[in-house]
Design a protein around this nucleic acid. Structure first.
Lengths: 135, 135
DNA sequence: GACTTATATAAGCCCCGACTGACATAGTGG
DNA sequence: CCACTATGTCAGTCGGGGCTTATATAAGTC
């Protein structure tokens, strides 16, 4: 499974998000995620497995607990993959900076795409598994 | 469809890769991709649609041609999303630097994950639609 | 206008990934 | 030991995404 496929799932993104704050036990993560997404414990465990199998996390046993932590390797690879495209916006920013500096004002790109936040809302006061309208 | 889902497909990554070199007509991209992945024209057209609908590309009509070009917006969002995790490797590099400087040598992480290149091989000398084992 | 090129859409099939419920396996504490 | 907690795995269902074939729609060409 490709790194992007792994990150394609909102649950897995949320889990990484939680682990970003530091090591956490599977059950700890599970509790939060289960409530937020309304899924079962096995479901979470399977997501943890996917993350584990794909190198996104490292696990450490402490008694019966499994302590998960972020392994940045695949994320770093994505960062490297992005490198090829980075010029598209750094360039744009540079140009913007230049234009601002010169006070130019002409070709104004109509900001076609609307702001599409990365995650609609990682929150979830008993959030159902909406996503319905999503697509 | 989430940005990561869009990038999860190798065909779409390849298309973006092609467009990174500059604007290209749908058919032009199609020819290459069809040969490399062994898929039909409609299949490619559908991938182009997904990229379009999700803001990864911009299209411009020139006669019967549709000229596609990269729209970096969603890629930039991913870049921003990565920000939260970036410290994990920049930090690691810093630490590495520090350790090297001090000549320390203790907790040696066993380099668990093997190198997983982002894309196995965008090549394709008459490449069959291997990938068979793929999805 | 008829024919061909360029590209997209529609309908339908199929596989894979996400979920659930049932169960297995270790630790933990009385 | 036994009950309970913590966590993972298995088998099976279901829906959606990706593919194909067929077809529509413009635009060039003669």
């Amino acid at each position: 499974m490709h790194a992007f496929d792994v990150l394609g799932d909102p649950v897995r993104r949320r889990i990484l998000d939680l682990l970003a704050d530091g090591e956490r036990a599977a059950g700890e993560v599970g509790g939060i995620v289960q409530e937020e997404f309304g899924i079962s414990q096995p479901a979470v465990s399977q997501h943890l497995r996917v993350l584990r199998d794909n190198g996104f996390t490292q696990v450490r046993a402490e008694g019966a607990r499994r302590l998960y932590s972020v392994d940045p390797t695949p994320l770093q690879e994505i960062d490297m993959w992005l490198e090829r495209y980075r010029r598209f916006w750094t360039q744009r920013l540079d140009a913007l900076g230049t234009e601002l500096a010169r006070g130019r004002r002409e070709r104004r790109q109509p900001t076609t795409a609307k702001a599409t936040p990365m995650d609609p809302s990682p929150q979830g006061p008993s959030a159902e598994k909406d996503e319905s309208t999503n697509r």
